[in-house]
Design a protein around this nucleic acid. Structure first.
Lengths: 125, 125
DNA sequence: ATTAGTACTATACTTTTGTATACTAAGAAT
DNA sequence: ATTCTTAGTATACAAAAGTATAGTACTAAT
């Protein structure tokens, strides 16, 4: 039985260990907002540059891209590599943690699809 | 191999099926914001009333609680049951979909904890 | 008539998130 | 000297999310 589910049976939500709560809010912070997941998805290809990200992600402004990249780097999801060429070359890549987050995304997709079929069943049973 | 992960290997992010994207954004919408997960966690106990939710969830205002409950109901995560007693009794409970979302929460906790240990490793290797 | 309990809603405000547009720094090529 | 490229930053603004505080509608008991 999973860690969180046992809370259902044992009525322990209040005592949910702090490190679980921290882990959960970490994950929420990594994904939240309009741009984090599109950026992570773009990085699944491999290393990529600022301008290519901007072209890849529809309608993101350089300001938002810059801000989100900084947060993702701070959170240890991506790494920023600077090459002292000219013009300067900067590449972004996913860390191992960043790659692993696909497992969360997968479970979100699974739930989302299940939820849609459930919603359809309950509206037109 | 999971649905999303195969994108890493086959360079297919651009062609990611629309229903996966819809499922993912559904899930994000269900969880996003400051209050949705605390509310879902409180409901894991079973049925609960407005005032008890308010006491359970630290610093939520009735306005936010009311707004979030409405959204969760619209999204088919919770059900609102009205009993015509006096004073009126209203109970909120998780739907089956609402209960299932614990699988997503579990995978978020798993990733979050892994991510913390990875982050520690990379800072003090 | 007043007080109290339940489940909210209204109004005004602050903070966070996102947009639009223009601009900068550094070196290389012309 | 001017222009080009990459990788952003600055400024001003709009919209969304969240907060604070007060008030409403209903009924029941005192």
């Amino acid at each position: 039985m999973s860690d969180f589910k046992e809370l259902i049976d044992r009525d322990k939500v209040q005592q949910c260990p702090r490190h679980y709560v921290l882990a959960l809010t970490d994950t929420l912070n990594v994904m939240n907002g309009k741009w984090k997941l599109p950026i992570i998805a773009s990085l699944l290809h491999g290393k990529i540059r600022f301008k290519d990200l901007q072209e890849n992600i529809d309608k993101i402004t350089p300001r938002m891209l810059s801000k989100e990249l900084k947060e993702l780097e701070l959170n240890g999801i991506i790494e920023r590599k600077v090459y002292n060429q000219t013009p300067v070359l900067i590449e972004y890549i996913l860390t191992d943690s960043g790659k692993n987050i696909t497992s969360v995304i997968d479970s979100m997709i699974d739930w989302g699809m299940l939820h849609r079929t459930e919603a359809i069943k309950s509206r037109w049973p």
